[in-house]
Amino acid sequence: MTLAIILFALALGCYLIAVLEDWAVHGRLDPLRPAVSALALLGREQVLPRKSDRLFFEVGPVLLLVAGLLAVAVIPLAPGLIVTDLATGALFLNAALAYVLVALIMAGWGPNGAYAMIGGWRFLGQFVAYAMLIVMTITAVAMRAESLSTTEIVTSQAALWNVFYQPIGFVLFVIAAMGLAWLPPIDLPTGGGDLAGGVEAEYTGARLAVLRLARLVIVLALASATATFYLGGWLGPWLPAWAWTAAKTLAVAAAMLFLGRHLPRLREARYLAVSWKLGIPLALANIILVGVIALVVPI
């Protein structure tokens, strides 16, 4: 039953995020658009590029989808409404999302196209930039909750949401999450204007549909993780718990999707430099700060 509810919520969430993304890209709100596009996509021919690495080409999108689904499994929708409440949930999320890198490199390598391949390798560089930030900000969140369990992280924020408790961590996590989900302006592996679709460039038909769906699941996973880690998850007055999680997740997703449309795509070297030279010291400072506060002020 729980699984069915979560899957339904997941499907609905993905659809709403697809609507938001379409709105952000085309500047027009059309609630039916993702359904129409998906149907059209499924009816289109699937092209297998010449000399492709068939295994990588087929496995890439599926692995991406699996990674996203695994990440979603440890996010609580409401108390008790979680696929698996692992004691190491926050770490598991991170481990699941590590496969995004593998999947994207496979999807980039598989089709034997230059744009796709460059896109895949670019994501490797991008990974180096965001990976530490994701882990280090989660560390600070877990320190306060004194647990890696995502439900305990939510309940630890009853007095004060983490977004106020550790705002530096929040900003770093959102930026790193946008890098992980290759959302503009950090969409280096698929950059429309400079790689013509990059990793996605050679996928068509149902395979592309899987790739797109996987991307939506990953965006949803990261938006809901942000809501869980920093915005108090299901906590909130008046509305039922699940509604709070849903509202916060969608708000975070909308912010992530719309922000990037007003910013130019980052230069890869600059993104790496800023992440390491500024982001990591800030994340360390955040850990120390949270540690001191946790020891001194009991909230």
Binding site: R50, K51, A196, A201
Partner: peptide, 9 residues
């Protein structure tokens, strides 16, 4: 020409 489909060929 366009997508690099034959790019490495």
């Amino acid at each position: 020409d366009e997508t690099g489909g034959g790019g490495r060929r």
